Computed example of a mutant assay.
Amino acid sequence: MLSEQRVMHMTKMAMIEDKQGRKLGPAIHYRKRDYLSLCTLGGVFLGTLIYAALYAGLIVLLASTLVVNIHLVGLILGILLGLVLYILYMYYYLRMVRRHAAKRYDEGVTLLRHLRKDYRELREMYQEEDLSKIPEGWD
């Protein structure tokens, strides 16, 4: 016999898992420190690619508009300025990536706690139903 309350509870849990199941991935598969390190590593690669594309575009733009001779000192200063800007960019970009990853991980952990509570309630419903099936003289 199906309990209507149990079916409604299972339906609610299934809808939560279906809608927000992607948020559970980091919380289930990784510890927070490992997940943040993984996101930071990906952020280093992606941030470097973005910065290199922007810097190359700036160089091409400057080279196409300034047709004057560039001296060695100007070239070295441009490279140093590019490195300083890269370090600043990566610092802020990686802070943003880690903050976003930590928020995503914490949301997954919160959702996982709620689901664990729901599963505990479901298990209690099954146990109550099992206890109600035992005949009177058998306990």
Rank of each mutant, 00 (worst) to 15 (best):
G47W: 00
G25V: 10
C39S: 09
G82M: 09
L62E: 11
Y55H: 10
A56P: 06
L46S: 10
M15Q: 10
M15N: 10
T65F: 04
R99E: 15
I76W: 06
L81I: 10
A53S: 12
E129A: 12
D118C: 04
K117Y: 14
H71C: 11
R95D: 13
R98V: 03
G108Q: 06
P26C: 02
R113W: 08
L81A: 09
V44R: 15
M96I: 08
L66H: 14
E107K: 09
E4R: 09
G25L: 06
I87C: 01
E129Q: 09
L77F: 14
A63D: 14
L61G: 01
Q127W: 14
A52V: 12
D106E: 14
G25K: 13
G47M: 02
L94H: 08
R33I: 14
K103P: 02
M125G: 00
V60P: 02
L61W: 15
Q127M: 10
T48N: 10
T11M: 05
R6N: 00
Y105S: 01
L83P: 01
K117H: 14
D18W: 03
L54V: 11
L122W: 07
H71D: 15
Y119I: 13
R6A: 00
L36A: 02
S64W: 15
L94T: 11
G43Q: 00
Y55P: 00
K103G: 08
A63I: 03
L36F: 05
R95L: 14
I28C: 03
K32L: 15
G108S: 09
K19Y: 08
L122I: 06
L85D: 04
V73F: 03
L72F: 13
R113C: 03
L66Y: 11
R104Q: 13
A53K: 15
N69W: 07
G108W: 02
M125S: 01
L24P: 03
I28A: 04
R31K: 13
P26W: 00
V67T: 05
A101Y: 07
K12I: 00
G21N: 14
I28R: 07
V97N: 01
K19M: 12
Y126L: 04
R120F: 02
R95G: 12
T40G: 01
C39A: 07
T11H: 05
N69S: 07
Y119T: 15
H114A: 05
Y91W: 10
G82Q: 12
A101W: 03
G108Y: 05
A56G: 09
R104A: 10
L83R: 04
L81W: 11
M90S: 03
I16H: 00
S37F: 06
L81M: 11
L24M: 04
L77C: 12
L58Q: 07
R120Y: 02
D18V: 03
L115G: 05
R22Y: 11
L72M: 13
G78H: 03
H100P: 03
T65V: 09
D106G: 14
D130Y: 10
P26A: 01
L85Y: 02
Y86F: 15
L46Q: 12
I59A: 08
A14R: 12
G42Y: 04
L85R: 04
L83K: 04
L80E: 15
T11C: 05
R113A: 03
R6Q: 02
E4P: 06
H9W: 00
I76V: 14
T40W: 00
A63E: 09
